[in-house]
Write a protein that binds this DNA or RNA. Structure first.
Lengths: 177, 177
DNA sequence: AGCGGAAGTGATAGACCTCTTACATCGGGG
DNA sequence: CCCCGATGTAAGAGGTCTATCACTTCCGCT
């Protein structure tokens, strides 16, 4: 653990997730991520040209992991896939702080990042398959899942466990079909 | 329009809404609001002790106006009240940028502001009445309405009009009952 | 008329952020 | 074995933000 870190790039993405989970997108800063990793505030710029590209990499990772979480949830519950996916969304977003507001953040639209584009496209494709390409149903399910996640993140459900809320989100998603 | 503004306090709240609608909570700043009104950056502090209290006043106004918009929507559509209220939520939030993430923002929890407390309580009471005190149904409806609003604000529905999205949110809310 | 307080102003301290630049360190290939 | 490029650092320019302070302006009241 000397002068060189080993894999600072990956560590930056991981630490960014921690920061997002703790403080949300509004408090996110490159400097804070660097502090958390005990590297200088210039170090991140060796790996990402600017803040937006770091966030873009976070977005790509989140899109990838969220997709995996949804696919796994569907596999565990094949006859109730969409609801299971909604529940997985809530668990992922509440755990990481990275939902569609990070993955599809408007401030990232101008960032050229093929990796991110590919991951978000794969996520969309998977979600479309889950809804049999019914865009309206996809929207509604996303709205439910993201709405519940937001309520948790804003402190509405301090008494409820994440799993309880995820279950209720899944129930709501089922009701929409 | 001389040295004194007339009613800077109200103007600050109004300008804060404009800023929220344009740039969201993360870009909100007291200085930016002052710039927009062409007053010095110290002027807002004559009317609010700090940034949190200005946001708290915005929250109170938003809670009040959102409640009015919901009540009016219910009155126009008495036999489908909850869905109408969900549609009104989407229209209000997309128009003003001030939804539950502003009204119930976690960063305001420690601000002592009786006016805000009263308005948010009245809003909650109204929403509880709409759902016959079914807290689960209230949560689900809020999640749908806020989820659709978030999707709009993140740029998902650039091709759709707000009214269209509000209609779909109302449909989804109806499906939950 | 003129005075007192409410509501502006400019200047500024102090914190933090983004991103750059010049320099230091280290590990791996020739 | 040594050098070079990748990856780190310290320092700082330039920006924004919050909040304060002393000062000014103007309105309303006596």
């Amino acid at each position: 653990m000397g002068y060189h870190h080993g894999d600072l790039r990956a560590a930056l993405i991981r630490a960014s997730f921690e920061l997002l989970a703790e403080s949300g997108l509004s408090r996110f800063s490159v400097a804070a991520v660097a502090r958390r990793l005990k590297v200088s505030s210039a170090a991140p710029y060796r790996h990402f040209p600017d803040r937006a590209h770091l966030l873009s990499a976070v977005s790509a990772t989140a899109a990838h992991d969220l997709r995996e979480a949804m696919v796994a949830a569907v596999a565990r519950n094949p006859d109730d896939g969409l609801a299971a996916a909604a529940g997985a969304y809530v668990r992922y977003v509440v755990g990481t702080g990275a939902g569609i507001h990070v993955i599809f953040a408007a401030e990232l639209y101008e960032v050229a990042d093929d990796c991110r584009r590919e991951q978000t496209r794969a996520l969309m494709t998977t979600m479309l398959e889950l809804t049999d390409s019914d865009v309206r149903l996809l929207e509604a399910t996303l709205a439910v899942a993201h709405g519940y996640s937001s309520l948790v993140l804003e402190g509405f459900f301090t008494k409820d466990s994440v799993d309880d809320v995820a279950q209720r989100a899944a129930d709501a998603a089922r009701a929409l079909q």
